[in-house]
Simulated scan of single mutants.
Amino acid sequence: MIDFMDNVQNAFYETSHWNLDNSYGALNATARALLDFQTPKGLRLQISSLAAPNFATSYTIGSVGVVDGSVSYLYSSLPVQRELRSANLALRHVIRGYRHLQELRRPDEKWWWELWHDGVRIDNRDTLLYGRIFLPQSTLEALYLRRLSPTRQLKITAVSDSNLNNGGTILALLQTDVGKYSTEYMYSTDSALLGVRGLYNFGYDPRVAPTSTPTAEDVVEPVHGRFSAGAELYYGLLNKSGGISTGLRFTTLPNHTGFPYTMTLTLNPLMGNLSSTYAVKAGKNLALCSRFDFNFYSYESELQLGCELWRRRSNTEVEWAVKKLRPEWKRPIASPDDDVSGILKARVDQDWRIGVLWEGRIKELLFTLGASVDLRKREQIFRAVGIELQYSS
């Protein structure tokens, strides 16, 4: 489950009209959500608060052998416009599941962001600042995010830890997204790493506005899917090593009348790794996913299968129908998933390593209960068992 601060950051992206899915790094986001979920270890409790529309705090304490925790603060120049109280927030915002990609959005015009007063521009670029310290390790991590223009943003992350080389590392990303394509330029102080990656979407270009009076030749069949291709290249100046990867993705769009599905194929030619995924939303409450990895040099392969099942309250529609008959009844504002009582995730690989996760809400608490099982190790089948609780106000 996404923690409180990540939810605030996603709200910042949404309010500032930044598409997280339109990047090469998010090419396999659906498969990772269904197969690479983390199972909790021990007991962990997080208490968070949006003290003001621009300021948030979060405190975490856990027990895995020793007591540890973290304290984090976040400031956003852009007021958060999302319900974040754990009792009322939409579960789809905090649970990673099958991702329905939307139609590409036309970028904002630059002049939309301008604010003038007495002939002088007084507008500022939206900025997000985030910091967290882990105790008792005294590890510090920070994030600086600044929207430079409607199509560009700068993201700088830093980690300070005595166990790392030079006591820490800094990663800078300059990201550009015009809808039709996106690019990212990267620099990391770790090995003086330089990188670039990009994603191109075939077909519809959101920057091209349709004509007001289309002719018969302009009318075309609506597109029900999107084909995307991308690549990544990076090189470390200090260790004189680099890497390259490329990938393809096809996904259905909201106007697709059948089952939504997503297919991806990624290749790392230097390492010889080939990975293919297929995810399908088989029903309103069920999603299935598979991933097959193969290495051309060692001929080793790996297969993973996963599923996601949303459990809904069966009596919701009955209660709503009864209440609707009352003249004095007024329907309250509710989130789209008010009838969701929990989400079950499960995965298994060819070595019979199983991961199970149950996520949901009990009154004003969000919970994540999970376990990792290795059926080949009969003397210690359970590798990890834990529960995480979140409360936010």
Rank of each mutant, 00 (worst) to 15 (best):
2 I>W: 12
5 M>L: 15
6 D>H: 08
7 N>H: 09
7 N>A: 13
14 E>H: 08
15 T>M: 02
22 N>L: 00
26 A>M: 06
27 L>A: 07
31 A>K: 11
33 A>C: 05
34 L>Y: 05
37 F>V: 04
37 F>N: 06
38 Q>M: 05
43 L>T: 08
45 L>F: 14
45 L>I: 13
49 S>N: 15
53 P>F: 08
53 P>C: 07
54 N>T: 10
65 G>Q: 00
66 V>H: 14
67 V>C: 07
70 S>H: 08
71 V>L: 04
72 S>V: 00
73 Y>F: 15
73 Y>V: 12
74 L>M: 03
80 V>I: 15
81 Q>P: 09
83 E>V: 04
89 L>D: 07
101 L>M: 06
111 W>P: 01
112 W>F: 13
133 I>N: 14
134 F>H: 13
140 L>H: 00
141 E>C: 10
146 R>E: 13
150 P>N: 11
153 Q>D: 04
153 Q>S: 00
157 T>I: 14
159 V>A: 11
161 D>L: 01
165 N>M: 03
170 I>P: 09
172 A>V: 14
173 L>A: 04
181 Y>A: 12
185 Y>L: 02
185 Y>G: 09
186 M>V: 07
187 Y>C: 02
199 L>Y: 15
200 Y>Q: 10
203 G>N: 04
203 G>D: 06
205 D>G: 02
213 T>R: 15
218 D>G: 09
219 V>N: 07
222 P>R: 13
226 R>L: 13
227 F>Y: 11
227 F>T: 05
231 A>S: 13
237 L>C: 03
240 K>C: 14
242 G>E: 14
244 I>L: 10
249 R>Q: 14
250 F>E: 12
250 F>M: 13
255 N>R: 00
256 H>K: 00
258 G>S: 03
261 Y>H: 02
262 T>C: 08
265 L>V: 06
266 T>H: 00
268 N>G: 08
274 L>V: 10
276 S>F: 00
278 Y>M: 14
285 N>G: 12
286 L>W: 11
291 R>T: 05
291 R>I: 02
298 S>L: 03
299 Y>V: 01
306 G>F: 06
307 C>I: 00
309 L>P: 03
310 W>F: 00
314 S>N: 10
314 S>Q: 11
314 S>Y: 15
315 N>I: 10
321 A>C: 09
323 K>E: 09
326 R>Y: 09
327 P>S: 06
331 R>G: 10
332 P>C: 01
334 A>W: 01
339 D>T: 01
339 D>C: 02
339 D>V: 00
340 V>S: 04
345 K>W: 04
348 V>H: 04
348 V>L: 04
351 D>T: 10
355 G>W: 02
357 L>V: 08
358 W>M: 08
359 E>N: 07
359 E>V: 02
360 G>P: 05
360 G>T: 01
363 K>M: 01
365 L>A: 01
368 T>V: 07
370 G>K: 11
371 A>I: 12
373 V>C: 12
379 E>R: 13
384 A>D: 11
386 G>T: 07
386 G>W: 06
388 E>Q: 12
389 L>D: 14
393 S>I: 01
